[in-house]
């Protein structure tokens, strides 16, 4: 219901930020997010940053998944191939 995209803050002036998504830039309001800083990754919805991405949580999630995938991939025969 709400398209919101991870973007990096590259500039802040007053409570407006310039965000960057793969080289596309736009102004975005920081009125809904306390203490955002340049370099932060935020989730932007309809021109407002609504959340700062928790890098720690992101790393944890991914490393757990990657471990599981490596285990599955590293043990041939241990994992039946997904049937179609």
């Amino acid at each position: 219901m709400c398209l919101a995209i991870p973007s990096r803050i590259v500039e802040i002036k007053d409570r407006m930020a310039v965000i960057d998504v793969d080289g596309v830039r736009r102004e975005c309001s920081l009125l809904l997010l306390e203490d955002a800083a340049v370099g932060d990754w935020v989730i932007v919805h309809a021109g407002f940053a609504i959340s700062r991405i928790d890098e720690e949580a992101a790393r944890e999630t991914l490393s757990l998944l990657r471990e599981a995938a490596a285990l599955a991939g590293g043990a041939p025969g241990g994992e039946p191939p997904a049937g179609e």
Partner: peptide, 12 residues
């Protein structure tokens, strides 16, 4: 191109 992908994501 990454930028094209980016704008598409932003605007749906």
């Amino acid at each position: 191109k990454p930028e094209v992908a980016g704008l598409c994501e932003l605007l749906g």
